[in-house]
Write a protein that binds this DNA or RNA. Structure first.
Ligand code: FES
Ligand code: FES
Lengths: 147, 147
DNA sequence: CTGTTCTCCTATTATAATGATATGAAAGAT
DNA sequence: ATCTTTCATATCATTATAATAGGAGAACAG
């Protein structure tokens, strides 16, 4: 039960976007360099984040991506849902049809508890929290990254 | 981030084994019939549970599988670990080498929180809880299953 | 001792999900 | 016009999951 690289990379990119918010949009190329990722792959991720209304984009020179709302207003739950889908660890929690003995399933309550617990953690963390960690990190200031 | 069918099926099988504990071992065939699963696939799952010390097995006629400890002593965390691996949603939480910017990673704390939260839920649920749900279920008694 | 029931071991296959790359069109800025 | 960037879509490689298959070997009942 691991999260995808999309979510890993996407969350870090958003944390960086929190640094520049609301000063300027950051091009995918720049974010990709920072993380040592392929630009094309990150574009894919940012595209999903845009579809979810988490980032806005501007084309052309001095364009790029920026947070659609303030970092405090973007929870990790929204990010998770955008890049990873549901937080329910089994489909039947949300689509009862899938499992046969749904009504009397002794394990489903456990999976529901798990989902709620995950939602709790992700719902109480925002991009602002991530960005704050970058600001207070040892390397911050040494980076070539310009705000 | 979904759990595997191994865990889904395995957890339900263990809940059933809680019913017969400590009366008699139940053959894989019987458990598979109940869930409408292939015997061979369930054997595979039970084998993993045995390797983890969660069930014992007896060969030959009137053999089968039984819980290695009392249902109250088997947590869902142990079952999860046996069938699904670590509860950490990213490898770097437990293997720092994997991620590049490990030390200053702004997102890792979130994944650690997730792991702890998942551990909390799974650690506080036991097979006995699952078995109890079967006992108090509507269909219980109507089933052909004999203790 | 013989047949039956069952676990146990290992190999194989099918299918799906993930991770990643590639190509180029459309839009915006100067 | 030209450069920069998003955007849309297609493709490929790799891995993980799900499931099946065949048969060896233990336990036991008669
Ligand atoms: S209803 Fe889906 S695992 Fe029980
Ligand atoms: S250290 Fe692995 S996601 Fe940050």
């Amino acid at each position: 039960m691991e999260i995808s690289t999309k979510l890993r990379y996407g969350a870090r990119a958003l944390a960086e976007l929190g640094l520049t918010y609301p000063k300027r949009p950051v091009p995918a190329r720049e974010l990709a360099e920072q993380q040592g990722l392929s630009v094309k792959y990150l574009e894919h991720i940012l595209s999903a984040l845009k579809a979810a209304g988490i980032v806005n984009s501007k084309r052309g020179m001095s364009g790029g991506y920026e947070l659609a709302r303030s970092p405090e207003q973007i929870t990790m739950k929204a990010v998770f849902n955008a890049l990873e889908g549901s937080t329910a660890p089994v489909k039947c929690v949300e689509n009862p049809e899938i499992c046969s003995q749904y009504d009397d399933c002794p394990t489903r309550p456990v999976w529901e508890e798990l989902r709620d617990s995950i939602d709790g953690v992700l719902g109480s963390t925002t991009i602002a929290d991530l960005t704050e960690r970058i600001r207070s990190s040892a390397k911050y200031g040494k980076t070539t990254y310009q705000i």
